[in-house]
Write a protein that binds this DNA or RNA. Sequence first.
DNA 1: CGCGAAATTGACTCGCCTCAAGGTGAGTGG
DNA 2: CCACTCACCTTGAGGCGAGTCAATTTCGCG
Lengths: 250, 250
Amino acid sequence: MTATMNLERAGTSPAARSAHSCSDCPVRDVSFCAGLDEEERSAFTAMRRQKQLLPGEALAWQDEESPFLAVVREGIVKNTVMDANGGEQTVGISRSGDFVGRPFSGPTPYGISAVGPVELCVFPRNDFDRLANERQGVGHHMLKVTLDELQRTRRWLLMLGKKSATQKVSAFILEFARNGRDLADDEACVVELPFGRQEIADILGLTIETVSREFTGLRRHGVIDLPSRRSVAVKDLAALADASGEVTYN
Amino acid sequence: MTATMNLERAGTSPAARSAHSCSDCPVRDVSFCAGLDEEERSAFTAMRRQKQLLPGEALAWQDEESPFLAVVREGIVKNTVMDANGGEQTVGISRSGDFVGRPFSGPTPYGISAVGPVELCVFPRNDFDRLANERQGVGHHMLKVTLDELQRTRRWLLMLGKKSATQKVSAFILEFARNGRDLADDEACVVELPFGRQEIADILGLTIETVSREFTGLRRHGVIDLPSRRSVAVKDLAALADASGEVTYN
DNA sequence: CGCGAAATTGACTCGCCTCAAGGTGAGTGG
DNA sequence: CCACTCACCTTGAGGCGAGTCAATTTCGCG
């Protein structure tokens, strides 16, 4: 956790970066990487190349063949699908340690691009597929990761299908406020959002105007504060959880 | 395909049914089952029990531990999540040959229930997990199936996030009209919908009234006809595809 | 035929989108 | 250090699509 701190906003020293191996990688114990044993890890190290993406830069385009798979070292990557009218819907978000891309198949049915600066470990798909076939552990671990991702995507369906704009935005902020840790009644915690308003709109299936209005609405009700464009100070966590339409069993 | 016909609306002769093995199963070459070799198939046969569900009957409840996994032999099964207000959102649909339930983990985070009468091959989860761990092929095949399911769920996200009621209902009908086959310009094909209006609403994130209005709207525009409650006759496929907001590359 | 569940229809409301101006703030060059 | 600028965000007015509430109607089935 704290090990990732010193890498924030890196990307200024590419040469130094590519010298790293898994052993000192900040995500070696997170998500996908955490499930690999030493032998598997070194197999991955052998085939991977490091790559950096600038904010907004794409790793793969929708419906095009992409020869790459990747693991996120640092930063956030999103998967998006284009609507017929040019609208964009975000269908997946990958953070540090998460796996990105689609093994065993042709064209990626969604675009993959960086949210802010990103560092990746990139694998040629052929090599990865072979490894997943040969090494029992890799395929099995991959399965677990995919099942988890499917689960998250299904929750997301509930949000898009049944929640109001207020509930969507509240749930979104809550997600980042909690971000792993428990966060009992820590009032006044400040969250740095990695997304701009338009990106939030694309995630929640709303327009940018509605997102903005919901933010200011929550501020007016004293639930949050907005010290800067991309940061949110949660002032009343209980109220936020309530507004998100969460069921509280008390 | 045609082999499934003689099993429709079965469920009247449980004893006869449970005598079946994989070798004469209608779904042995579909979806999950299709990816297994003979040896794996017999391993599954050894551990499975057959089970029938009445329309609406549940196999697992949301957030409760379920000791079962299953493959659908006949009928349709849905995964649903309850909203805070008692609203229901369908987050997954499984058809003949599809895998149902969540391996390798605790409580199922969604409810599983039958749409119409259903026949299943049920496996104790422990046994299944062990098999998936021991036999390379099973885990690997399971991964492919899960990746496909994730993909379908992501498309669904786009629908819920960005499409209008008309587009949703049109796309829904289209899905069943095509159902695998290509269906070039076969006008006047009749589709039997396995879902009632409320169930369609729960899938599309709409209300039952809106779904109903969209159906009659499409009928008034001569796009479809509604010979009975659960059947739709597609009269103008091109218009339907157009109404669904599909991109046509012509 | 008659009952009950499911579907349809109508009137009305409200939430979110659309379109159109302003603000705001970080980065740039004078 | 300040004006400039451009991207991003906010705010407002207005319209429309989908939800809500409330009857009916229709269909499937005993």
